[in-house]
């Protein structure tokens, strides 16, 4: 099994007619993802390499029974696109777009929680979600991931996620689902949401978690690992030596006043019983050790 997306998941791409949307949408289809529709109000009735384009998500859902939307709309249009997808009736909205204003994210997070509590947003500014061998939604290079199990991955960083998938693959370890929650200040899906889903998924037997400086999401995840998780967790947190007050790439990755440091996060995770590596390779080795002990 896998969490949230599998071989039956039907996906509509908002922005499929744009250059990024087309590139990744077609790649995702080549991987095996059921890319059933795209949207663009100005190009309704046309198609992208055989994939029908509808004016709205609601129409796409009606015609194709899509349950997931993937958003490649430029940042200014993301707020509207997310609301359109929620109103259109999908269950999961994967927002790849980076550069979405914080106030837009905070607004649609709370709006959805109130008016569409059953709808999950993943991202913005995330690589997407992949259940290897079944479904790949977003910008992850599918071939670096080994299908199967027993590991579930949740990460805030793109390239470090790929690194983790690749290291596990080289060790012959499969992955049920890999979720990139994104590095923005208001992620639609938190580590805890992912950890709970992995805890409930019978095929996921261990979880790899990749964190980053800034905010307190890793500390909150540590609390959940301590109280709510029976499955083992291996973790890595980037930014141990990042200077305070400097913004390093991701909107989320900024340390202020000693809060949100990688060290504090690693300590919290260790105290919760997770195994924490000092670098990505070490975390991969720790995971390999955990997997070896499972059998």
């Amino acid at each position: 099994m896998s969490i949230w997306v599998d071989e039956n998941t039907r996906v509509v791409y908002q922005g499929l007619t744009g250059s990024q949307g087309r590139f990744y949408g077609l790649r995702n289809r080549d991987y095996g993802t059921r890319v059933v529709a795209g949207t663009n109000p100005k190009k309704a009735g046309s198609d992208v390499d055989g994939i029908p384009i509808y004016a709205t998500v609601a129409e796409a859902v009606k015609e194709t029974a899509a349950t997931v939307s993937c958003v490649f709309i430029p940042a200014p249009g993301v707020k509207g696109a997310v609301m359109e997808a929620a109103e259109g009736g999908v269950e999961l909205i994967v927002v790849i777009t980076e550069g979405v204003p914080m106030h837009d994210e905070a607004w649609f997070f709370n709006k959805l929680k109130r008016d569409f509590p059953q709808v999950r947003v993943l991202g913005p500014n995330c690589p997407g979600i992949i259940s290897p061998g079944k479904c790949n939604i977003g910008i992850t290079a599918g071939h670096i991931a080994e299908p199967g199990g027993p590991v579930g991955i949740v990460s805030r960083s793109g390239t470090l996620t790929y690194q983790a998938l690749f290291e596990l693959k080289q060790k012959g370890i499969g992955c049920t689902t890999c979720v990139g929650v994104g590095g923005d200040p208001v992620p639609g899906t938190s580590y805890i949401d992912c950890l709970q889903a992995f805890e409930a998924d019978p095929e996921t037997e261990a979880v790899m978690m990749i964190g980053e400086i800034g905010g307190s999401a890793e500390e909150e995840a540590a609390d959940y690992i301590k109280t709510g998780m029976t499955k083992p967790v291996a973790a890595y947190v980037a930014g141990v030596t990042a200077p305070a007050g400097k913004k390093m790439g991701h909107a989320g990755a900024i340390v202020s006043g000693g809060k949100g440091t990688a060290k504090a996060k690693m300590e919290a995770l260790r105290a919760a019983g997770a195994m924490v590596g000092d670098n990505p390779t070490e975390a991969g080795e720790l995971m390999a050790g955990i997997v070896a002990d499972l059998s």
Binding site: T159, L160, G183, T241
Partner: peptide, 15 residues
């Protein structure tokens, strides 16, 4: 390439 990997690289050099 990638903010996470760049941060991780800075960490490993320090390490």
């Amino acid at each position: 390439n990638g903010a996470g990997l760049a941060m991780s690289t800075v960490d490993v050099v320090n390490e």
